[in-house]
Write a protein that binds this DNA or RNA. Structure first.
Length: 655
RNA sequence: GAGGGGGUAGCUCAGGUGGUAGAGCAACGGAUUUUUAAUCCGUUGGUCGGGGGUUCGAGUCCCCCCCUCCUCACCA
């Protein structure tokens, strides 16, 4: 013990005199590394604590702590004495500083601002230049003296291999691919080569003009005769071989992902082609692309929860659209017979591998057509896109093959239910049993909800290859015509692939009287459902009076076909009572949001839409396709986040 | 909302039972005139997600919080 303690004392004395003797910033850095550095003497000393006898460790440990503080103090003292411009740079700052130095070095020769480049015209894509290299036969020795023409490219430096001070190989990449560039003193002025050797970093953007020739190893290479820095990269790039794998970083900083991961870049290029392919396909069939409002006062066309926003100029609340259906149908009324809209819609709901709050759909409507036209259209469209973008009609999703080739089988909704769940759609007790088997509670669910729940749990997982599910119960489809041969069924299909719904189509309901009935029924159902939820909310205590009032209202809503919330003073009184009680509930935000929707009846019955139908909407086929999901299938991406450039991410909190 | 995996150098990752954080790549210095994830020699670089606790000593043990991925739930 004595010896360890003595050693510590001696080290402190030694460090004090060493730091005291420092006369320059360089010396200080040396002494700092000697004592405080990673392999410095202080580390060695601290390591000895563990070697000391167990009973001595407390004393020795405490002394080592003092020593560390003392030496750190010596360093700071010396630093202050020299006034050497603040603490040493560390980590990413040091790397950035190195690059700044190189930037200055380059600009010292080429002038201020030269590191940020300018127009560099008459470029070839790397992909095009590579085509100028004749393919080499197996084992064939390339003629490295033969020039195969010239090339001019702009690209990012991905790899750098210095063979010597006279020859440097770079691997550079542009959007189309990678190519080797050689900087050689026999092709490039010595001064240029020297400057670049000392100032060129990975991920810098450069412009190169030169001769095309194989190397002796047969690598297609652009031998630079002129080279310019087009943009300096100041931030340190990710690891050159493994690239960027951390998903969070990839989503938050997509630009890094696109540079580092060619597969990711390829997926988004494919997505762009897919979107333009959809447009071309529809345009070629005479559809016109329309642009309808994103901001709406009544978010209709679906039952999803909307995002709410506020328009200052008019002092009104507005909503982001949850579908494009309603305005497009008004265009059918207006005499535009084949219309579509491809764009973003917004739903204030969950996030998982196949859901993002904002996503892209294409909705299309064709007058005087029906479901059958929509079927032909979507199966041709999707198999056409698959063939064009992947070369085939069978894709791989989550490790399993998925067939997208037309024609897709037509599967009856109720038959699927019976086949996979073993119950009939009319068998309420059976449905309840299946819901309980899945660990859910069927109480409070409407018949439609029950059927939907069982179908989702038992049938959807089996819908791997692209298929049409048809003949849904009509209650599930409020905007859809009844089936011409069976009024209980909807003239509707949902297209599934890989267990995801990728399209949904109707023979559109154009009877304004029937439409009003359906919307009213849906509205009453929503009211009743909300009231029942309030009654069932676990942990919520509501007074006996209120309970009776709510139960009464539910009865009234469910049994009177023409019930309207407007003017029902009982309903408003109940809402106010609920409002005061809900304030302390755990899920109060959820309930307040639902209450707000219920307070404005126009949110549930879109009178303007019904009025439009009364002017005559032609019978029509209509369809919505989930572009993101189709894109997942065609690019083979397992998550919707891999096909959305900037998926939703919780903001990072800085501590 | 529930369960599980993860957060360590700029990047990719190691770190039995607490002993004072390592490697590869990148960076810096040097060698190298046809390499290709170039190679060889040397060097620097870390509030180990954040906060608190136990301890002489915490990446490691305990508590709280944050972010993320996966599965499930929710979701026309």
């Amino acid at each position: 013990m004595a010896s360890v303690l003595e050693a510590l004392e001696a080290l402190e004395a030694e460090a004090r005199s060493a730091f005291a003797a420092v006369r320059s910033a360089e010396d200080l850095e040396k002494v700092r590394i000697e004592y405080l550095g990673k392999k410095g003497k202080l580390k060695d000393a601290k390591a000895q604590v563990g070697q000391a006898a167990a009973e001595d460790r407390p004393k020795v440990g405490a002394r080592a702590k003092e020593l560390e503080a003392a030496v750190q103090g010596c360093f700071e003292e010396a630093q202050a004495r020299l006034a050497s411009g603040g603490p040493a740079l560390s980590g990413v700052e040091a790397l950035r500083d190195e690059r700044l130095q190189k930037l200055k070095k380059y600009e010292a020769v080429h002038g201020a601002g030269s590191a940020w480049g300018a127009r560099f015209a008459n470029l070839s894509a790397i992909e095009e230049l590579r085509k100028k290299f004749p393919p080499l036969a197996e084992g064939q020795q390339p003629d490295s003296n033969q020039t195969l023409g010239t090339g001019r490219i702009a690209a990012r430096v991905m790899l750098r291999r210095d063979q010597s001070k006279k020859l440097i190989f770079l691997t550079v990449a542009d959007q189309s691919g990678e190519l080797q560039v050689a900087l050689w003193n026999k092709k490039l002025p010595e001064a240029t080569l020297d400057l670049l050797r000392e100032s060129l970093d990975l991920w810098d953007l450069i412009g190169v003009e030169g001769e095309l020739a194989y190397t002796q190893r047969g690598e297609p290479t652009l031998w630079a005769t002129e080279i310019k820095l087009l943009t300096k990269c100041l931030a340190p790039p990710p690891e050159k071989h493994h690239g960027l794998t951390d998903k969070e970083t990839r989503y938050r900083h997509r630009h890094l992902d696109l540079i580092s991961n060619p597969d990711s870049r390829k997926a988004f290029i494919t997505r762009a082609k897919l979107v333009s392919g959809v447009r071309r396909f529809l345009d070629d069939q005479g559809f016109l692309e329309m642009e309808t409002p994103v901001l709406q006062t009544i978010p209709g066309g679906a039952a999803a929860r909307p995002f709410k926003t506020h328009l200052n100029a008019l002092g009104i609340d507005m909503f982001m659209r949850i579908a494009t259906e309603i305005p497009l149908k008004k265009l059918l009324v207006g005499g535009l017979d084949k219309v579509y809209e491809l764009g973003r819609i917004f739903r204030n709901e969950g996030v998982d591998y196949s859901h993002n709050p904002e996503f892209t759909t294409v909705e299309l409507y064709q007058a005087y057509a029906d479901l059958r036209d929509m079927m032909a259209l979507v199966e041709n469209l999707v198999s056409h896109l698959a063939r064009e973008l992947t070369g085939g009609t069978t894709v791989t999703f989550r490790g399993k093959p998925v067939k997208l080739g037309a024609p897709w089988p037509r599967l009856d909704y109720c038959e699927l239910l019976e086949k996979h769940a073993g119950v009939k759609a009319t068998d309420e007790a059976g449905l309840d049993r299946k819901i309980r088997e899945a660990g859910e509670n069927p109480e409070g669910l409407s018949m439609v909800d029950k059927i939907d729940s069982v179908f989702g749990t038992y049938a959807e997982p089996h819908l791997t290859d692209a298929c049409f599910v048809i003949n849904q119960p009509v209650e599930m489809s409020p905007l859809c015509k009844a089936h011409p041969e069976d009024a209980a069924k909807a003239h509707r299909f949902e297209a599934f692939a890989a267990s995801m719904e990728i399209a949904n189509a109707y023979s559109e309901l154009n009877d304004p009287l029937e439409q009003r009935k359906r919307l009213a029924a849906q509205m009453r159902e929503t009211w009743a459902k909300f009231m029942r939820e309030v009654l069932d909310e676990p942990g919520a205590s509501i007074g006996a009076d209120l309970k009776i009032g709510i139960e009464g209202l539910v009865q009234r809503v469910e049994h009177s076909a023409d019930w309207q919330p407007t003017g029902d003073s009982d309903a408003n009184r109940l809402l106010r009572s609920i409002e005061t009680q809900v304030k302390t509930w755990k899920r109060k935000d959820y309930f307040f949001e639902r209450m707000q929707r219920l307070e404005d009846p126009s949110l549930l019955i879109d009178e303007d839409f019904l009025h439009a139908l009364e002017h005559g909407m032609p019978p029509a086929g209509g369809m919505g396709i989930g572009i993101d999901r189709v894109c997942m299938l065609i690019t083979g991406c397992d998550s919707i986040r891999d096909v959305i450039l900037f998926p939703l991410m919780r903001p990072e909190k800085n501590a």
